[in-house]
Each structure stands twice: as C-alpha cells, then as structure tokens.
Simulated scan of single mutants.
Amino acid sequence: MKRGSAFLLTGIFMLINVAAMAQCSLCTKTAQQLGEGPAKGLNNGILMLALTPLVIIGFLAFRWWRSNREA
C-alpha cells in the first residue's frame, strides 16, 4: 500500500510542476532576445523533449520492479 501511495504522490507532483523552468544559461539568453511568447514556446519544447526519456525510464523501471516482485 505504501508503494502505491508513493507512486501516486510522485505522479501528482510531476503533473503539478508543469510550469518548471527548464532552460540552460544559453537557452535563457536566447529566449530573452526572442521575447516573451517565443520564450514560453522554447521552454515548453525543452520540457517536451525531456519528458520522452523520463517516460521510457519510468516504464522500464516499472517493468523491472514488477518482474522482481513476482519472482
């Protein structure tokens, strides 16, 4: 039960923290030159690119956890 609650809580925190600033110093400088609208688009693009590997790693970790639990 505790593990299920931990996964649920982690998922909720990940959904709440969507407005994170995910820019390195070079991207921040470029975004400042572009203006506010394109800067938000750049930030969203960076977050979308970061999401794919995190989902894949999470899926693999879940499969590994499930296979070790059943064995």
Rank of each mutant, 00 (worst) to 15 (best):
K29E: 08
L54P: 02
S25Q: 10
T28H: 03
T30P: 02
N17C: 13
G41W: 01
T52W: 03
L47W: 03
A39H: 08
G37E: 07
G11L: 00
N44F: 09
L9D: 06
W64V: 15
A71H: 06
I12E: 05
E70M: 05
A50S: 09
Q23T: 02
P38G: 00
F59H: 09
K40D: 08
C24Y: 07
F13S: 13
L8W: 06
I57Q: 10
I56W: 01
L60N: 09
A61H: 03
W65R: 14
I57M: 12
R63L: 15
A61K: 11
A22E: 00
T52H: 02
A20G: 10
L60M: 14
M48W: 10
L26S: 12
W65L: 15
V18I: 08
P53E: 06
W65H: 14
R63I: 11
K2F: 09
E70K: 07
A39D: 04
L34S: 08
R3P: 01
F13C: 15
G4R: 06
I16W: 04
M1G: 15
A39W: 00
L26G: 11
N43K: 01
E70I: 10
A6N: 06
G37D: 11
T28E: 10
L49M: 12
S67M: 00
P38S: 05
L8Y: 01
S5P: 00
N17L: 14
A31M: 04
L49G: 05
L26W: 02
M21C: 12
V18C: 04
Q33I: 15
A22N: 06
K2R: 10
K29P: 04
A71F: 03
L34H: 01
E70P: 05
A50Y: 02
A39P: 00
A61M: 12
M1V: 13
M14N: 10
T28A: 15
P38Y: 04
N68V: 09
V55D: 01
M14I: 14
Q23D: 02
W64Y: 15
F7M: 15
M14P: 02
A20T: 09
A71C: 03
V55N: 04
A19M: 04
L51M: 14
G4W: 07
P53K: 06
F59I: 14
K29D: 03
G4F: 05
G37N: 07
K2S: 05
L47C: 09
G58Q: 07
L9A: 15
F62I: 14
S67L: 07
F7P: 00
L47E: 06
L9E: 02
C24G: 13
N44M: 12
R66N: 09
R3M: 11
F13P: 01
K2N: 08
L26Y: 01
M48S: 13
A39M: 06
L15Y: 00
F62A: 14
L49P: 07
R63S: 13
R63Q: 15
F13N: 10
F13M: 14
A31I: 00
R69I: 08
A39S: 15
I16Q: 04
E36G: 10
G58Y: 00
N17P: 04
L47S: 01
F59C: 14
A20W: 01
N44P: 05
A61N: 13
G35P: 08
F7K: 15
T28R: 11
N43E: 06
A6Y: 00
T52L: 13
Q33V: 13
I16P: 03
T28Y: 03
E36H: 14
L8F: 13
Q32F: 02
L51H: 05
S5V: 12
L8T: 14
G11A: 05
